[in-house]
Design a protein around this nucleic acid. Sequence first.
DNA 1: GTCAAGATTAGT
DNA 2: CTAATCTTGACG
Length: 196
Amino acid sequence: MSEALSREFFDRPVLRVAPDLLGRLLVRRYRGRRLAGRIVEVEAYGGLQDAASHARCGPTPRNRVMFGPPGRSYVYQIYGLHCCLNLVCEPQGQAAAVLIRALEPVEGEDVMAALRPGRSRREWTSGPGRLCRALALDRRHDGLELPSPGLWLETGEPLPRKRQARSPRIGVAYAGEAARWLHRFYERGNPFVSRP
DNA sequence: GTCAAGATTAGT
DNA sequence: CTAATCTTGACG
């Protein structure tokens, strides 16, 4: 097992952390099993300046972990149905987080399949809501300090710049100018990326 | 207290 | 394209 990423890794500008997460391993301990996926797609979110961010209007009960210390998980529910996983960045007081949008399954695929009945391998971890379902993550995992016993990141093999691509973020058309920022990062050509 | 909208997904 | 499903947070 490679080294675990912790607070200092995330204590940097979110636009540096986000692309640096590509190729890393997200690992989950679930019922004695190790579930792991290679991160292939992420999005960076900021604070008051970012009209697409949950933190755009300042701290609230839901987003407060985004304003806290780096290296924690921020998990929220969306559309009353799905949960999404973020990793908090930047020093305490500055709201910033990286949304994990897609993984390439690496370990524990049988468990992921059981958690995603009726779906194909590609659909287990492609999309922010799907990956949480495949790793059995929900709002109980909000605010965890990473590494935590049930969830952590491992160094893995960082993705070379040449294989990285950028685009505007998905699903934030309401955010005006911020909707056009190139804050989405993904591995070029990887079939587990949720959208080309 | 009210209510519109959502960092999505699955199904027609 | 649209329904599902319910929490959040802005507003008054």
